[in-house]
Nucleic acid binder design. Structure first.
Length: 479
RNA sequence: CGCGGGGUAGAGCAGUUGGCAGCUCGCCAGGCCCAUAACCUGGAGGUCGUCGGUUCGAAUCCGACCCCCGCAACCA
């Protein structure tokens, strides 16, 4: 039995869950389910990243204890499990004691490797934005959003990580493993970036400036900045460092991350692992972004789509279907209400939903015997596609089968036949539907279970609609 | 000469290694009536951003240009 360790990135909890993260975790969930179905032993990790200035400020703004705020938001992220029907095994929080201890131990290892050093760190800071600004972000030496205000120059001592030391090792890693980052163009992107030279990066902040973080070992004035804290979750989640047998059972991980996370995951984290003397990740899959009507989702544009609201309106499987089948798995994808409804109506209501009604009804009327799913060619194709992160294709294979069944049903017209002949005609069609439902478990677990249950026992009545037409609950869908 | 992704039928998109241009929705016509006014068949509709090149043959390779969208290293 193969061991398969899969982890998402940890979303930052300065705001409610984003549709982009829903995409990431639903894809991860599909992959985890595919591996379980194939008989692998799976550990699926997710969680939340809770430290940092933004979280601290957010809590202050709400008049909450920081930890209380974190507890609240962590719970709202963990709610996604039920909402989106996710199957993860572990939900890690970076405020977990165990994780903090692991982050500190990781720091010590890198320090022992000579890769952590202290240095002056100077940065321009926009008081208006309350954010650090790089020169490339400035216009005429001022923040473009607050041109009237002078930038503050912050000059402090921080710890740095010697990233520059790992350029060659990183290149070697990329070259030795052509599928280390998927899609391939992302590997190319990160390789080019590394080949152009690397600069060390700062990995701590003054406690006085960032009061909410993991303490730097043996330096009460500094806390870790995000990298040495959050990234370490991938190994602290599986027992590093105090449970080596568990760690060795699972590591290295397959990781999934948004394209904004290419560098942290495929570059910084890998170099950090090298420094700590640990094996590199197994593979990193990079998601595109979801745009809303072709534009980037942003609060200022007011076009942010909430995954929670979508699920509350349509249910987990509908949202999962849109994310897995419709959002391009190699590039950015788009969301519009119109497209969402179109996909719902065409593929789910008129497609699978109606087919299930047709076949279920005919099977009931003709007293078809119970059927169990078989593993066939479809299964092989679907599993293979999912393992290659080709979710669109995998779901497409299943829908091809549905179209086939609809077509055969129309051709054979079993409703005109007498019982024995009808049964003979229906049997292979229901078999196809049930076999496809077996594969569908990976993507739409609830729907698949309904279909499998219906045909696995003596049929006692008409099937209930899987996906009602929009006309019938149109008023539920409002902008 | 900063980096990357795009520009294919009215709309949304597929088109791995160059070989008659596809899918879904919408539209038109027919069929069916088991089913969620659903399903099936056929049809109309495209100078594949522009210009040039390579080739027997290019949406696909090469070059130039135009337009759109992200990102521009500590902003998770």
């Amino acid at each position: 039995m193969a061991q398969f360790y899969l982890t998402t990135t940890l979303p930052y909890i300065n705001s409610e869950p984003h549709l982009g993260f829903a995409l990431e975790i639903v894809r991860a969930d599909a992959l985890a389910r595919a591996h379980r179905l194939a008989g692998d032993n799976v550990f699926f990790n997710t969680g939340v990243d809770e430290h940092g200035l933004k979280v601290w400020r957010k809590a202050q703004g709400l008049g909450l204890e920081t930890q209380a705020y974190c507890d609240k938001l962590a719970a709202s992220f963990n709610d996604l499990k039920k909402l989106l029907d996710l199957s993860y095994d572990n939900f890690i929080r970076t405020t977990d004691q165990h994780h903090q201890a692991a982050a500190q131990e990781f720091w010590r290892r890198c320090l022992a490797s000579g890769d952590i050093y202290k240095q002056h760190y100077s940065v321009k800071y926009c008081v208006g934005c309350e954010m650090e600004k790089t020169d490339s972000e400035l216009e005429n030496g001022h923040c473009p959003l607050h041109p009237d205000q002078d930038l503050e120059l912050i000059d402090e001592e921080n710890y740095f990580f010697r990233l520059s030391k790992y350029q060659n090792q990183l290149l070697k890693l990329y070259d030795s493993q052509p599928d280390f980052v998927v899609p391939a163009n992302r590997l190319k992107e990160i390789r080019n970036f590394v080949a152009n030279g690397l600069q060390d990066f700062s990995i701590s902040r003054l406690v006085s400036k960032l009061p909410w973080g993991v303490a730097v070992p043996d330096d009460p004035e500094q806390v870790m900045y995000v990298w040495f804290d959050a990234l370490v979750n991938y190994i602290s989640a599986i027992g590093w460092p105090d449970k080596p047998e568990k760690f060795n059972q699972w590591w290295p991980a397959v990781q999934i991350a948004g394209k904004d996370n290419l560098r942290p995951q495929a570059l910084m984290w890998q170099a950090m692992l090298m420094s700590a003397g640990l094996p590199a990740s197994r593979q990193i899959f990079i998601d595109g972004f979801i745009t809303a009507g072709g534009q980037k989702m942003s609060k200022s544009l007011g076009n942010v789509i909430s995954p929670v609201e979508l699920v509350e309106k349509f249910g987990a499987d509908v949202v999962r279907y849109y994310l897995l089948a419709e959002i391009n798995d190699r590039d950015d994808g788009d969301y519009t209400d119109e497209r969402f409804m179109e996909v719902y109506q065409a593929d789910l209501a008129n497609g699978l939903g109606n087919l299930f009604s047709r076949l279920g009804n005919l099977a009931w009327k003709n007293g078809l015997n119970p059927l169990a799913p078989k593993i066939g060619q479809l299964y092989t194709k679907v599993i293979q596609s999912v393992e290659n992160w080709q979710f669109n294709q995998a779901v497409g294979y299943i829908w091809q089968v549905y179209r086939q069944i609809d077509k055969k049903l129309t051709e054979q017209q079993p409703w005109k036949l007498e019982t024995a002949a009808a049964q003979k005609s229906l049997q292979p069609l229901v078999e196809d539907l049930v076999d496809a439902a077996y594969c569908l478990q990976i993507f739409l677990p609830t729907t698949a279970k309904t279909i499998l249950n219906f045909f696995s026992q003596p049929i006692t009545g008409k099937p209930k609609p899987l996906f009602p037409r929009f006309d019938q609950f149109n008023n539920n869908f409002k902008k």
